[in-house]
Amino acid sequence: MSYEAPASDHGDHDSPYEGLFGGDSDHWAFGTDFDDPLAGIEAAIPDGADPRALAQYCLMLGDDALVLSHRLSQWCGRAPELELDIALANIALDLLGQARLLLARAASADPSVVPPLPGSSDGLPSPVPAEDALAFFRDDRAYRNAWLAEAPNGDFGQTVARILLFATARLALLERLRASRDAVLAAVAAKGVRELAYHRDFAARWFVTLAQGTEESRGRVTAGLAEVWRHHDELFRAHPVERELAGAGVAVDPADVAGEADAALATVLAASDLPWPRVPQAGQLGGRSGRDGAHTEALSPLLAEMQSVARAHPRGRW
């Protein structure tokens, strides 16, 4: 009852892809030659950096990526065309990969950020890895993402506008973060820059396409942009943790990249023949916003869904 792939009794007919890899067909479906983005990276906390601040900073960057990845994954099976379904999933997967590295870094910098797990009083160590404890057992008030990441998807136009704004700001930030004195953050940034350059390119092209497509698409993408633009300023407002770590050469002050990001956005708007949006910015909650753990109504239902299975089985293995 052995079961093997059919013998190649028809020569070339059976392996049209053989030539792609010089006979090394393993390369494309079975390959193991990936880059571990953190291979050989020094994990020590850089001198002069407060580990607790570093952990908070990693949560800010990691939560942005995790929450937006989750939103984009909601498009899976619903995109306007198959090619777009695949593209949106690729962006979601890239961001999820960034989130995992950053949450793991947060936990290693300051283990006290990892929430204690319910039901672990039997003395056995928790089977839940730190990245998952942070993602699935942390309450909304402990999430540090910006509001732009948690806002609902809206239609495809609004989703494109959100990716454009998010990727433009994050790309500018990570480009500088590559020089961080924290070797892990620098490595994560170097990997992220390549990904975000692609995300921004995807979003910019689609933004211009929709803005210059039909009357309907122009109306929709303009409305979508106005919706997400309410969260523009928050992206460039520095939290004290960011300022402190920027001073130590570990983080980037987001205010420092605002000019660069806005210039890129202006290019896209000009190609779209659209004016710079003049929309009221979403106000803070008593001076607090996403970076402080204060959120919009959108986040807690998102987390309730995302965390439901993990929390139902706090001792589960997956």
Binding site: F34, P37, G97, R194, E195
Partner: peptide
């Protein structure tokens, strides 16, 4: 470059 670390795609 972005697909370089998607190890979960590979059966091995």
């Amino acid at each position: 470059a972005p697909s370089g670390d998607k190890v979960y795609r590979h059966p091995t």
